[in-house]
């Protein structure tokens, strides 16, 4: 396992190099001059040229590419607009995104695993049908609708939670529910399918034959085996949550990485976009590697080679 893990880790720099090169080239192709966003049109062409020269925007592509890596590695990659190091800005935002992602994942797991297990246990009954209907509705409701609805009911109507922001007590609840409930829908179906498959196994029948209680059979034996696909999906969901909570962050004014990237793209803050995408790619790669490691821990039959 350690050799496998080392190989995966050794591949990371290559992956990130490819991602950063792709991001750099793609952001160069996007229409829109960063200088226009910085100084507007009320500027002479001389002033614009001056600013472009100051930020090396007119240098040959190859030179800029080398400079990008030099600045990135020295921590001197700076936002065009704020002139602050990109790493410093992202370091401020990432904990917020991480907090929200973990809370959403918790919501997703707390809803989906019991619901999916129950649906599997009550297969073919109204409980199963209802669970799957709930999952279908959950997956069909977009977060840009669910978020405001949760605000109207729980923040305006009942006054239980803040409308938006990240600084008041309980402010994480509604954005976590918005993200978590959508993800729970997929996880519920995965859990149901996986538990159903496991419940048909011989060792489950043997466990029942030994007189173990149904709760012990399901929770201790069936769920442990069924957990592999569940963990896979949870891992993917965590990656998606860490990198793709843009809409929810916008709705709930949650100061995370997603909002920062959207703002950077809108204002053509190229170093900010490039640095952010690289960070997100790193997160994805690390989360995926950790998910693979979790397989082996959960199920010794899965050998990491």
């Amino acid at each position: 396992m350690s050799r496998w893990l080392l190989a995966r880790i050794a591949l990371l720099p290559l992956l990130l190099l490819a991602v950063s090169a792709g991001t750099f080239l793609l952001s160069e192709l996007v229409p829109g001059d960063p200088v226009d966003f910085m100084i507007g049109e009320n500027a002479t062409s001389e002033r614009k040229s001056e600013l472009r020269a100051a930020y090396h925007l007119d240098d040959p592509l190859g030179e800029r590419f080398v400079r990008f890596y030099a600045e990135l590695l020295s921590g001197e990659l700076r936002s065009l607009h704020t002139r602050r190091p990109v790493i410093e800005i992202l370091a401020e935002r990432l904990p917020n995104t991480g907090r929200l992602a973990l809370a959403a994942l918790l919501v997703s797991a707390l809803v989906a695993i019991p619901l999916g297990t129950l649906a599997a246990r009550k297969r073919g009954t109204w409980i199963d049908d209802s669970s799957m209907l709930v999952a279908l509705v959950g997956i069909s409701v977009p977060s840009f609708w669910l978020g405001p609805m949760l605000i109207i009911v729980f923040a305006i109507g009942l006054g239980w939670f803040p409308v938006s922001g990240a600084d008041a007590p309980g402010s994480i609840v509604l954005p976590a529910l918005t993200l978590g409930l959508g993800m729970a829908s997929i996880l519920t179906r995965i859990t149901r399918a996986s538990v159903l498959e496991t419940l048909g196994q011989d060792y489950i029948r043997a466990a029942r034959a030994r007189g173990l209680s149904e709760r012990t059979v399901v929770v201790r034996h069936a769920l442990r085996t069924a957990a592999i696909p569940i963990v896979t999906v949870l891992g993917l969901q965590l990656g998606a949550l860490l990198t793709g909570t843009v809409i929810t962050e916008e709705i709930f004014a949650w100061p995370g990485v997603g909002r920062e990237i959207v703002q950077a793209v809108r204002s053509r803050d190229l170093p900010m976009v490039q640095g952010s995408v690289l960070l997100l790619a790193t997160i994805w790669a690390v989360v995926n590697t950790l998910t693979d490691v979790a397989y082996a821990i959960l199920d010794p039959r899965v050998a990491l080679r």
């Binding site: 239980w160 803040p162 008041a168 402010s171 149904e214 709760r215």
Partner: peptide, 26 residues
């Protein structure tokens, strides 16, 4: 085959949740 019993929240848990909710709104 026995039924899967999921325990419901007791009065103490409900009181805790209620007090948590009341303290949450901005």
């Amino acid at each position: 085959m026995g039924s899967l019993h999921i325990a419901g929240p007791g009065p103490l848990a409900i009181a805790l949740i209620a007090s948590l909710l009341l303290s949450c709104g901005r």
